[in-house]
């Protein structure tokens, strides 16, 4: 749908992708911080579980950064 000279579909895509990615990347890193904080204070199996959660969230965060760099490299191409 085009309103005047602006394509509304493009704007809506930017809006929802930005919101999902912005909140997603912050949430992922927040889980890293939470996992590390609990890992330091816990013992035994619980400690391992928090550590694993922190590592998984960190992997998601790194994947987001790699995707961002890839978008930078391919934009306008």
């Amino acid at each position: 749908m085009i309103l005047g000279v602006v394509e509304l579909g493009q704007i809506f895509e930017v809006i929802w992708v930005s919101l999902v990615c912005g909140v997603g990347i912050t949430a992922a890193f927040s889980f890293v911080v939470l996992g590390l904080a609990r890992y330091v204070d816990s013992h035994g199996g619980v400690r391992l579980a928090w550590g694993a959660m922190a590592l998984t969230a960190f992997a998601i965060f790194v994947a987001g950064v790699v995707l961002a760099v890839q978008i930078m490299l391919t934009k306008g191409g």
Binding site: Q10, E13, V14, V17, S18, G22, I25, A68, K75
Partner: peptide, 17 residues
């Protein structure tokens, strides 16, 4: 993080912000 997400999403679809 949110700022980078907005800029890169816009870049990806060619919307200049």
């Amino acid at each position: 993080g949110a700022g980078a997400a907005v800029i890169l999403s816009a870049s990806h679809v060619g919307f200049p912000l």
